[in-house]
Design a binder for these strands. Structure first.
Length: 495
DNA sequence: AAAAAAC
């Protein structure tokens, strides 16, 4: 075997993995069989969608959304209706055309369940949870475009907030994509450097980050008097984050009391759940059970490295696999993103880095190059952990296991889920590989696995060819699916 | 001991 293999900790030498790692080992065959079955099911569904042109093509595991109607709604004795056709939702002709042009032939589960609730009259607040890559953005964008009165195209009527510049830009693209046939549609991005100073914002839809939006309202650049809808994407993150939670609350308090509040995320930890309900009083809610949070199409794996230095060698070993499709590597700090990028480039690999220390235009450009496939490997921080939709991403690497809190004492299970959700988008399959290298990182990954009741497949670095083959199999399936599974974001970039 | 988000 190569030098590398001999430097990787052997299974029986791995530090402190007694219970967990052994059970993973024992379950490995079962895991693989399950992963294959899931991937196979996804493939079958995609094939079916192509044959019949009927399905959404979305590989959704059988999860049930618990629908809890607000008290008011229940009192009206309105039966809850989950739509299975766009045509059942009373959408405008232009909006229907936009959705169908994106190959969104049928609503996904979260779309079918949330839209009738969001569009009910009088408007009701909503908190909706659904796994990564199941169409939440298209759901709230459709709600926004359905609520806006386009006879007043210059009047701000809907506002969507996101936790990063990149995500705000992406949502802006989806509004333009789904609203392609709406005339005149005006969307503004309220992010640093994107709005002309001291000029009124004349767009019906505004997508932005909390600080800039707050600023632009205070300066009276943005007239919010006619605002009908406020969306918080990644709502748990928006409300939980120190600083951002305050900014979101201040923005909300400047809006008309009648504004409809829509909260969307793949995760709503109990800790922020009650606060979220205060933020959006009397909201309808769609919730997932903890066991339903994981996307079955994502094969979750891990590699056991002997120490921190070996992680870099393993990363380089994986480079060939990364470039079959596209890959995102998550690290803890901006500095390590820079450093690993420099090192990999020096070692002859093509890798770009993106984090919030870059200026706005540079960030836009970097992500745009990644979306176009010009750059295949992106090393980044948690700035891209949430929401970013690049359908051709087939592999996510947790170079550092996400931790929360000041002392890194606790694994960040939510961030893990969002990070791996950058692959396996809308019915595709994908791979995530997490690097562990000491007791702390083992325990952290074990904690995350326990949180979701999942097992991770161990890639044996002593048999690199086999490990590689196992990953390659999923990546190839992802490539095969790419031609069929629809993505609003892919279309947005094209237009 | 981090990242992100405003001027």
């Amino acid at each position: 075997m190569s030098d590398l293999a001999s430097r990787i900790t052997k299974p029986d030498e791995a530090p402190k993995k007694v219970d967990w790692a052994e059970s993973v080992e024992a379950d490995e065959n079962k895991q693989q069989a399950e992963a294959e079955a899931a991937a196979g099911a996804a493939e079958t569904q995609v094939d079916g969608a192509v044959e019949e042109l009927g399905g959404s093509g979305l590989h959704e595991p059988e999860w049930d959304v618990e629908v809890s109607l607000s008290e008011l709604q229940a009192n009206e004795a309105t039966p809850f209706h989950s739509a299975t056709q766009w045509q059942d939702m009373g959408l405008s002709e232009d909006l229907l055309k936009g959705l169908l042009a994106l190959k969104f032939l049928k609503p996904s589960k979260v779309q079918g369940k949330s839209l009738p609730l969001m569009l009910s009259d009088p408007p009701r607040n909503m908190m909706a949870q659904s796994q990564s890559g199941t169409g939440k953005t298209a759901a709230f964008v459709t709600a926004i475009l359905s609520r806006v009165d386009f006879t007043k195209p210059d009047q701000p009527q809907a506002l969507a907030l996101a936790p990063s510049r990149e995500l705000a830009r992406q949502i802006e693209g989806v509004v333009n994509a789904i609203g392609r046939f709406i005339e005149p549609l005006k969307v503004a991005a309220a992010i640093p450097g994107a709005l002309p100073r001291d000029q009124p914002v004349r767009s019906a839809v505004i997508v932005g980050t909390p600080g800039t939006v707050q600023d632009v309202i205070k300066r009276r650049q943005l007239d919010v008097s006619q605002l009908k809808v406020l969306v918080l994407d990644e709502a748990d993150n928006m409300l939980d984050q120190q600083g951002m939670g305050d900014q979101c609350l201040r923005v909300k308090n400047m809006l008309p009391k009648s504004v409809q509040i829509l909260l969307f995320s793949a995760t709503f930890p109990d800790k922020v759940g009650s606060y979220a309900m205060k933020f959006a009083p009397n909201a309808h809610s769609l919730k997932l059970q903890r066991s339903e949070l994981t996307v079955k199409g994502i094969s979750q794996m891990f590699i056991d490295c002997a120490d921190d230095n070996i992680k870099y060698d393993v990363l380089c070993k994986l480079y060939g696999l990364m470039t079959i499709g596209q890959s995102v590597i998550f690290v803890k700090t901006r500095e390590s993103a820079n450093e690993i990028q420099r090192r990999m480039v020096a070692d002859g690999h093509k890798v770009s880095a993106l984090h919030a220390a870059f200026d706005g235009n540079e960030r836009d450009e970097l992500l745009s190059k990644f979306r176009q496939g010009e750059n295949k490997v992106l090393i980044t921080t948690n700035v891209l952990a949430r929401g970013i939709d690049v359908s051709t991403v087939s592999m996510v690497i947790n170079y550092d296991i996400p931790m929360k809190g000041r002392g890194d004492s606790e694994p960040d299970a939510e961030t893990y889920l969002h990070r791996i959700g950058r692959t396996g988008r809308f019915g595709r399959v994908g791979v995530s590989i997490s690097f562990v290298y000491d007791k702390k990182s083992y325990d952290a990954l074990l904690g995350i696995a326990n949180t979701y009741g999942i097992d991770l497949v161990r890639l044996d670095t002593d048999d690199w060819d086999e490990a590689e083959e196992r990953v390659k199999e999923v990546i190839k399936k992802n490539r095969a699916q790419a031609a069929y599974a629809p993505s609003a974001t892919d279309n947005a970039k094209a237009s």
